[in-house]
Amino acid sequence: MDELNLENEHELLNSLETILTSECNLHEYIDDIPQIFATDNLKTMSHKEETNGENIETLFDKFPMSSNVSKDNTNEIVTLKSKCEELHTQIERLTKEKEEAFEEIERLKDQILSQSTYCTSLGAVLGNLTWRASRFPQIVDTWLSNFQSKIGEFLSIVNGTFGAFVDTYRSAFPPTSNVEYQFVMGLLGIVTNISASPEGREFLITNSSGMEFVQKLIKLMPELPLAPGTVSLKRLMLMILYNVSMNKTGLQYLLESRVEDTLSHCLDDEASSEEMQLLCLRVLQSVTYDLDKPKYIHNLIATIPIEKIEIITSAKRSDISNAAKQVIKYLQHSQKITK
């Protein structure tokens, strides 16, 4: 190695210190590469890498590659520079791939939304057509005679769809023109017509999905928000409960599920229309008729006191007043039996 004067020695030491510091930064940067790809800050870190790259290039340009520098350090610097360039190329490629992946995700989201809207619209149309067809008893009889397995599958769909619908719109109900609302209305209308026949309600209350659906009707009705769309939905729900109560097994299931809690909420709801109040009293009439189990009688009277029903007997509409009087008569008769 050539002889160096004092000034050149200081210059060499300073240069080597700069190189070693840069080398540490390079190693730290290389170690951080996997973490960069695991975060959403790829573009920010890519920009940082470009800045670091410029600084490294500047360092290499300023550093004199003379024979005074050891060949080992020179080779290591060249190797690190090559690795940095390779990593920079990889970052650019991965950044592009990530951007393309995000674009593909957005495209697929739009496609799924479009398909979901189409399927819901189709379901709403077919559901309402089937609802109207099921008004004819002979249609329902044919379904129950020849397609019981399909009716079971249908009840499973109704059970899942209704629960998801209420969970989604629990706080803000959609307008009645909403296709999802129309779809759910069609499904509940079909179940109402199926349960209108003795065979239909027997199938409904003995099918596992049907029983779960009835349980959801009892549980979710008080949770429905006040909105114009809930009136029609509650009407169908109460009609299904009334039909189920006309079946011995169904009545037992309603009483075990404390249907009186739901009926009490319906009678106490000041927003309930007279029609809703009448439907609620009809269900209560059916539930209290010939009721002779002390447990159920006690639960009913404790939840819906006779005094509350007596207030309804003074209603202006005669059908509401008469229904309330009938409920009181049944409850008083049941009380005498249990004494």
Rank of each mutant, 00 (worst) to 15 (best):
I194T: 05
L155W: 03
L241A: 00
V191W: 05
S232D: 06
F162D: 03
E99V: 10
V78S: 02
V140E: 05
F203G: 01
S121F: 04
L59G: 04
A101G: 13
S134Y: 07
I151D: 11
N14K: 06
F102P: 01
L281G: 00
Q115T: 12
E9Q: 09
V184Y: 07
V184E: 09
F154M: 01
N73T: 15
M246T: 12
L284C: 03
I36V: 14
I190M: 02
K48L: 06
S272Q: 10
N159P: 11
N14C: 09
S264F: 05
D61H: 14
I240R: 01
Q35T: 15
T58P: 02
K83S: 07
S245W: 03
Q35I: 13
L122A: 15
T79F: 04
Q35D: 15
M221P: 06
F37W: 12
V140D: 08
K308F: 11
T21Q: 11
L236T: 05
K293E: 12
C280M: 02
V158K: 01
K150F: 06
I36D: 01
A172M: 13
L12H: 08
T89S: 04
K81A: 02
F60A: 00
P34C: 08
N247F: 05
I194F: 09
E23H: 01
I312Q: 07
K295R: 13
E180V: 10
Q90Y: 06
I304A: 05
V184N: 06
P174G: 15
I205N: 04
Q215R: 10
Y253N: 05
Q285E: 04
M239H: 14
K43Q: 15
M246S: 14
D269Y: 13
I194M: 09
Q326D: 00
S70C: 06
V166K: 00
E11L: 06
D290K: 11
E3S: 07
M185L: 13
I306A: 09
E23I: 01
L6A: 15
K43Y: 14
E310G: 09
T89A: 04
D167C: 10
H88G: 08
T142G: 13
R132E: 12
E212H: 12
K234W: 01
S318H: 02
L129F: 14
K216L: 06
P174F: 10
I218D: 08
T142K: 08
V244P: 00
T120S: 10
T79M: 03
M237I: 08
E223G: 11
S245P: 09
I56Q: 02
R235T: 13
G163W: 05
E9R: 03
T168M: 07
L281C: 00
L42R: 09
T142M: 10
P225A: 01
R93Y: 06
F136L: 12
M221K: 13
C280R: 01
I157T: 14
T74H: 10
D167H: 10
L255I: 03
K293P: 05
D269E: 15
S314E: 03
L188C: 08
F37M: 07
G229M: 03
E54P: 00
T58F: 00
Y181F: 14
V287S: 00
L108R: 14
M246F: 11
G123W: 00
G210I: 01
A302P: 11
